[in-house]
């Protein structure tokens, strides 16, 4: 059975837990604790270890969806979960205090996953805060990770269709990039 571990990262309140909930076909495993840090995100609970969901594909493929806690104090979990991951869905909530900086920081932490497979960026809660516009994100990604094509979408983590579009784009990008690399290798 082939495993494909996809990580969901991003700041607290970006929608990682919700996104995995929207995508998973099993009841998700959650590790929520009472949130005492209401300034960062005004919600009742926060993920402190991981979220876990699954999509089984045929008899021999399983897509494992892991959400990491958003807060930097849990970065030991980032290291643990990064190990097996081949792809990253980076969620950034547009209503964060400085969402572009969040993008920066998480790309710095998780950017290596581009080499292990691929990354897609989802800008959530743009209905709550319409700016910054998607272009700003795309621009910043080009600056931070030049020469790589990272899909960037507006997405509502509660919307299964949109999250599937993001996931499929991630996988399409991973497969095509591999195909191109393969062809270049053969050409060389």
């Amino acid at each position: 059975m082939a495993e494909h571990v996809i990580l969901f990262a991003g700041p607290m309140g970006a929608g990682k837990t919700t996104a995995i909930e929207s995508l998973s076909e099993i009841e998700t495993i959650r590790t929520e604790a009472t949130n005492t840090d209401r300034e960062t995100a005004d919600k009742d609970t926060t993920t402190v270890a991981l979220d876990y969901g699954e999509i089984t594909v045929g008899d021999d493929d399983k897509v494992r969806l892991y959400g990491v806690p958003g807060q930097r104090r849990f970065n030991f979990m980032w290291t643990i979960l990064k190990e097996r991951a081949v792809g990253l869905v980076l969620l950034v909530n547009n209503d964060a205090a400085d969402p572009i900086r969040e993008l920066d920081e998480f790309l710095e932490e998780f950017g290596e996953l581009h080499e292990k497979g691929g990354i897609v960026v989802c800008v959530t809660r743009s209905d709550v805060a319409p700016t910054p516009y998607l272009d700003k994100y795309a621009e910043r990604i080009r600056e931070v990770m030049p020469g790589r094509m990272i899909p960037v979408f507006t997405a509502d983590a509660r919307n299964g269709d949109q999250m599937r579009t993001a996931l499929m784009s991630l996988i399409a990008n991973i497969e095509i990039t591999a195909m191109i690399a393969d062809n270049q290798e053969r050409a060389a």
Partner: peptide, 16 residues
């Protein structure tokens, strides 16, 4: 601080 974070994760995993 680090132990506090890890312990909270552990506790949540145990609960899960």
């Amino acid at each position: 601080r680090r132990v506090a974070s890890m312990a909270s994760s552990m506790q949540a995993l145990g609960d899960a």
